[in-house]
Design a protein around this nucleic acid. Structure first.
Lengths: 243, 243
DNA sequence: AGCCGCTTGTGAACGTTCGCACAAAGTCAA
DNA sequence: TTGACTTTGTGCGAACGTTCACAAGCGGCT
């Protein structure tokens, strides 16, 4: 019964690295690559934090979670940090990815340079539409979704990307899970249900726009008021609670 | 000092919807549309929560923030809830969006149905590449980025979408800000710096994959161990509450 | 009318995340 | 070696987010 608590603890403790930190590591990694390309050898938490757009204390705490030690008085060695973060994220191996759905978005994803540059290899393009099967795309041939088991067996695929319409997404998801895929990136605008051992992350373009819409309409409401706030639109990150 | 409660109340009651809630409202909205299309008139928090993939208590608390009242013993009126959430998100007006960058991703975004269906209108497609200017795309003609001021003046654009390469993103961003755009959705893999009154949201495809990579390598490490965890990693959305 | 079962709305406990502030630990110059 | 200076790593309190649990309220059945 009390295992719920234990499970939650185990998750947090075992994993060691907090989710919020994991979500930021790729940002640091990109910033570090930029710095490395510019020839910079070491970087302070302050500088890296500025480039990455975060607070420097947060950055240092994040890095402390993965045991990477900088040098006090100097900063972090860029190359070492790149290695450490890559290791933590599991990017030292090349993951094989199966991309399902070769519509507009699928086309864009197939050609997205950011995948290859971070160690992801698109192992196969799949689609259910017979008209699309056989099409050449970025040096690969689109195969039929029924070939999924073969594809996975060939290339030890463990990550699937779903770029199908919403009504096909759950079916594709089930097929992916059935052949052993345990991580799924879902671009379809729907909620997927999966077994506990499968991770799903969702990217929804229209949701992001709707969130912007919220903030935008709030800004519009504020500017229409004569003098609600003082000199600035500073309103949500700071509440004027006296110390 | 004792105003803590009062301050929290004021913020909550006023219009201060927590960010985490705002981020979920679009999900509820989509689920509600699905239910409405299926002809359902009312919905309980339990049912809606299941469809949306969240905890029902969280759903109720979220909804309570926007003052929408359900009926105890019955649930929420689907139509009323759609209206209330749409209102809260500012989706009762049609926002005009300028899409900058008509590469692979830009093409996909221009054709993305999810925009129009939620009240967003793509007012213009823009690109810096003269070869792309003039191209017809989903019923629109690609215009040069230099026409941005005219575009904004024509259609009162207040939201910009950046789908350019990373090295062009900050420049495009500055131009957007200069002509009065106050909300930006950034698909370029870089951090944008903007004035305080401008909101930026970032969508980064490779970051999501890297986060999956982290969990995936974590899982791989676990399965190679003999018996680290018991039978299960009970995680998310399910209440193990006894009957 | 009165009771019963269902569902909402929310107080309270808990867990997570954030950012300040500072001691510890290093470099560099003389 | 010593001392001034820089930067890391972290303890701590506050803010935020999540979940439980239950009183309050509503509809329907008898």
């Amino acid at each position: 019964m009390s295992d719920e608590r234990a499970a939650a603890n185990a998750r947090t403790r075992n994993r060691g690295i907090p989710d919020a930190t994991v979500a930021r590591l790729p940002i640091y990694l990109r910033a570090l690559h930029t710095l490395a390309d510019a020839g910079q050898r070491t970087v302070s938490s302050e500088e890296l934090a500025t480039v990455a757009g975060v607070n420097s204390a947060k950055l240092r705490k994040d890095l402390s979670h993965l045991g990477s030690y900088g040098t006090r008085g100097v900063g972090y060695d860029v190359a070492v940090l790149v290695d450490t973060i890559s290791q933590a994220l599991g990017l030292t191996q090349r993951w094989a990815v199966a991309l399902v759905g070769v519509g507009n978005l699928g086309h864009a994803l197939a050609g997205y340079a950011g995948f290859a540059s971070r160690g992801f290899r698109i192992a196969a393009l799949l689609d259910a539409d017979p008209d699309r099967v056989g099409e050449r795309l970025h040096g690969m041939v689109v195969r039929h979704i029924d070939e999924l088991p073969a594809v996975v067996a060939e290339g030890s695929v463990s990550i699937g990307v779903i770029a199908t319409p919403a009504n096909a997404a759950q079916d594709v998801c089930d097929r992916l899970v059935a052949v052993g895929v345990t991580s799924i990136l879902n671009f379809a605008p729907c909620v997927l249900s999966v077994p506990d051992n499968v991770d799903v992350r969702k990217v929804d373009l229209s949701i992001e726009l709707q969130i912007l819409s919220f903030h935008e309409s709030r800004k519009a409401a504020l500017t229409s008021l004569p003098s609600a706030l003082s000199d600035d639109g500073e309103d949500e990150y700071d509440e004027a609670v006296g110390p």
